[in-house]
Simulated assay, not measured.
Amino acid sequence: MGNTMCMTKKEIREAGKNGIGSRSRRMERSKRRSLLEEELLHRQALSMAIQQHQLSQRFDGSISRRVGSTSSRRRNDLTDQLANSKQLPEFLENIKTKKIVLIHGEGFGAWCWYKTIALLEETGLVPTALDLTGSGIDLTNTNNVTSLEAYSKPLIDYLENLSEDEKVILVGHSAGGACVSYALEHFPTKIAKAVFLCATMISDGQRPFDVFAEELGSAELFTQESKFLTYGNGKDKPATGIMFEKEQMHGLYFNQSPTKDVALAMVSMRPIPLGPMMDKLSLTPEKYGTSRRFYIQTLDDHALSPDVQEKLVRVNPPEGVFKIRGSDHSPFFSKPQSLHKILVEIAQIP
């Protein structure tokens, strides 16, 4: 009897161990399967975004908080509107300009907007991401891009080809904000609204580099001493570009971004043409001054600090200011849902 009881307890213990082991194996298999599925979804989304700009995935992000807008009108909750497909046509009717043109920042390309493109298309809007000259998959040698006009040419061509009655919403990230300002000065009637995303919203007579000067030092000192400069025409000629090392890029641009997006950026970033960064921009009250501008601040930004962004909107006040908490300098990676909701809200403003 004693032996029987002893064996029974042992069997129970063994059964317990086997049960725990089985659950552990199932959990491990489930975890591996989830990781594989996530990786597959990421690759599919990225491939479709780069090749077709037509995605159907939804990406998670945190809710943004809108502050500081000059408008005090209350708006319907976007989450409820987007969740209810029956309301979608009525929701779109409230948006007069559905075309949104996405302009990347220095070193980036159209590829960086793949999450934003997916979300905007799901909403029923019509996003277009452009590669500026010498960026993304544009084959121009960045060493030959010497002016803001040349850098902005793909955007200029796009706006010139719009029909007379067409308007778009421009979104410019980082130094791409200078290209948006350039477009506002030259094509004011074709731009319904301009959104500066942690961007160089420069004033008349300023250079894009001037905005970064508080972070990087004066232009003169930077061009003399920086180890990140590139010399495409030879060391005896003036510097032609800037290329940060991976460690610096990670700290400046991606301190809150997912690992996979950082990996994508590390193999996709290109040298930053120096000429456009040093080009002074002429902006007039009659053209640029009549534009509707909005600014989105990123509050965990190491490339363009919140203090510098606050100074930009104070010196050159836009119509509305929005803030994304917990976002680095690449909110399209670190806070895609927050960015999306703000863009849709801006599109809705009458």
Results as ranks from 00 to 15, higher is better:
residue 1 M to L: 00
residue 6 C to L: 14
residue 8 T to G: 07
residue 9 K to H: 05
residue 16 G to E: 04
residue 23 R to V: 15
residue 31 K to C: 12
residue 33 R to G: 02
residue 51 Q to K: 08
residue 53 H to E: 15
residue 70 T to M: 12
residue 71 S to C: 14
residue 77 D to L: 08
residue 77 D to G: 07
residue 82 L to W: 05
residue 86 K to A: 00
residue 92 L to V: 04
residue 92 L to C: 05
residue 93 E to Q: 07
residue 96 K to I: 07
residue 100 I to L: 15
residue 104 H to A: 13
residue 108 F to A: 14
residue 119 L to Q: 02
residue 120 L to S: 02
residue 131 D to I: 06
residue 135 S to M: 13
residue 143 N to G: 04
residue 143 N to H: 11
residue 155 L to K: 00
residue 157 D to N: 08
residue 158 Y to H: 07
residue 159 L to N: 05
residue 165 D to Y: 10
residue 177 G to P: 00
residue 185 E to A: 06
residue 185 E to R: 09
residue 188 P to Y: 01
residue 202 I to G: 07
residue 204 D to Y: 03
residue 204 D to T: 05
residue 209 F to H: 07
residue 220 E to K: 12
residue 220 E to Q: 11
residue 224 Q to T: 09
residue 237 K to M: 08
residue 239 A to R: 00
residue 246 K to M: 11
residue 250 H to W: 10
residue 251 G to K: 03
residue 256 Q to K: 14
residue 261 D to S: 09
residue 263 A to S: 11
residue 267 V to P: 01
residue 271 P to T: 04
residue 272 I to Q: 06
residue 278 M to C: 06
residue 283 L to T: 09
residue 285 P to F: 03
residue 285 P to S: 04
residue 303 A to Y: 07
residue 308 V to F: 06
residue 311 K to H: 12
residue 313 V to F: 01
residue 314 R to M: 11
residue 314 R to S: 15
residue 317 P to H: 05
residue 320 G to A: 01
residue 320 G to N: 13
residue 333 F to S: 03
residue 336 P to E: 09
residue 342 I to T: 00
residue 343 L to G: 02
